[in-house]
Simulated assay, not measured.
Amino acid sequence: MTQQRTRDERRPANDGRKAAARNRAALIAAAREIYADSGLNAPLSAIARRAGVGQGVLYRHFPDRAAVATAVLDENVRQIEQAAAEPGADIVGVLGVLTWHQTQSAAFISLLHADRAGEVSAVPEYASALSGRVERALRRHLPAGHRLGGEREDLMIAVAMVSGAVAGPTREHRERRALAAWRLLGVEVGAVRPYGE
């Protein structure tokens, strides 16, 4: 004998697009957390678990590892671009936002080491493209004669050098090391903060 559901026991309506948007946002948030600690090679299954969804849901939104990484890292790069686009923005302030992202995420540091010099490398294309966007955002604020404006590669070599110094158990420790590295390079950096704070 089958029982009929009462009005209050009905199955919830399918949220369709709302659920898809929530799942995508949860996956990006989970990937950001996992990438911050483990870098871009973290297992996709860990991201799905952290988001509270199955791997099938992850693959419906992101067909491969590169798509997940691009979605997460694009947010970091977008914040740097937004900081650079602010009226009155200068290199000191934009470097502060960049440095905040360096201290937050192992994945972002990997991105900043992307080799765009035309050499054969294992750097994924999306990482190279995002790194190029960071370079353009910074370069537009380099005043004439700035120490990072010399040779074409000087700017991103300095960024990669600072990224290499960012290590430590806490964000505060990593921030101190990043600021010390910028200081040793003779470069002034503004407040280390995310864009908008």
Rank of each mutant, 00 (worst) to 15 (best):
M1N: 07
T2E: 13
Q3W: 00
Q3N: 12
Q4R: 12
N14R: 09
G16I: 02
A21L: 06
A21H: 05
N23T: 02
N23L: 05
I28E: 11
I28Y: 08
A29H: 02
A30Y: 03
R32M: 06
E33L: 07
I34T: 05
A36I: 10
G39D: 09
G39H: 06
S45M: 10
R50C: 01
R50D: 08
G52H: 08
G52V: 08
G54R: 05
V57A: 03
Y59W: 03
E75C: 02
Q82M: 15
A84H: 04
E86A: 15
E86L: 11
A89M: 14
A89F: 14
I91K: 03
V94M: 11
G96Y: 03
T99H: 06
W100G: 07
H101M: 11
Q104G: 07
S110V: 08
H113I: 05
A114H: 04
A114V: 05
A114I: 05
G118A: 10
G118C: 09
V123K: 08
P124C: 10
S128Y: 00
A129C: 10
A129I: 15
A137W: 00
L138C: 08
R139Q: 14
P143S: 13
G145A: 15
L148T: 04
D154A: 15
L155N: 02
M156F: 02
V159H: 04
M161Q: 14
G164E: 11
G168L: 09
P169T: 12
T170I: 06
E172Y: 01
E172M: 04
H173W: 12
L184Y: 09
V187R: 10
G196E: 04
E197I: 02
